[in-house]
């Protein structure tokens, strides 16, 4: 009975959110987050992973909120998206872990400082700043947020409005450009 009441309240909040009510939308997202978190925790290996999954699901709900039919209950719609995104997240993690090698100590190329000069030299910071300034706006923003301000991909995505994938592509292209420019 109580769950039914909760479901109806969430459905009402979603209807209001679709009409542009920001307060109702914030309340809805706050109320569904513990439900999503429970699902994420039951499928994750660590609490950080679970929180990443929760955020991923929230972003996905936001991205496809137009697909919600107000005539239908909210929870089945929401849980399908949550389960799909959590499964996607797990698949991504398995793919990443397959390519990672865990090591306690990073291998040194040599104990002699002399041979590592080219790797550890800071280079000319002015030259680097000039090269960054020469990047296209999107790539420059990616470098500033991810490298200079040391944000995570999700934080940079929220701050810039660019998607995580777009940030990765911009960063990759920026690094390629900087490498080329600075090597000359």
């Amino acid at each position: 009975m109580q769950a039914e009441g909760t479901g109806e309240r969430l459905t009402e909040l979603m209807r209001a959110a679709l009409d542009g009510d920001a307060a109702a939308y914030a309340r809805l997202l706050k109320e569904v987050t513990p439900i999503i978190r429970r699902l994420a925790k039951s499928r994750s290996t660590g609490s950080a992973d679970a929180e990443d999954m929760v955020q991923d699901v929230l972003l996905s709900l936001h991205a496809v909120r137009r697909t919600y039919d107000p005539a239908r209950p909210l929870m089945p719609w929401l849980m399908v998206i949550a389960r799909h995104r959590v499964a996607d997240f797990q698949r991504r993690q398995v793919r990443q872990k397959r390519n990672e090698v865990a090591v306690d100590v990073l291998p040194e190329t040599s104990s002699e400082d002399r041979t590592n000069i080219s790797n550890s030299a800071p280079g000319d910071p002015e030259e680097l700043l000039r090269a960054i300034a020469g990047l296209p706006p999107g790539q420059r923003q990616a470098v500033e947020l991810l490298k200079l301000r040391e944000m995570s991909l999700k934080e940079a995505s929220a701050a810039s409005g660019m998607s995580v994938a777009a940030l990765k592509v911009a960063m990759h292209r920026a690094m390629k450009f900087l490498r080329t420019v600075l090597s000359h």
Binding site: A22, A26, L29, R65, R66
Partner: peptide, 15 residues
């Protein structure tokens, strides 16, 4: 993130 998403709330043209 919730605050940021709610800030983006606007009337949505439903599918």
């Amino acid at each position: 993130l919730i605050v940021s998403l709610a800030g983006d709330a606007r009337p949505v043209r439903r599918l």
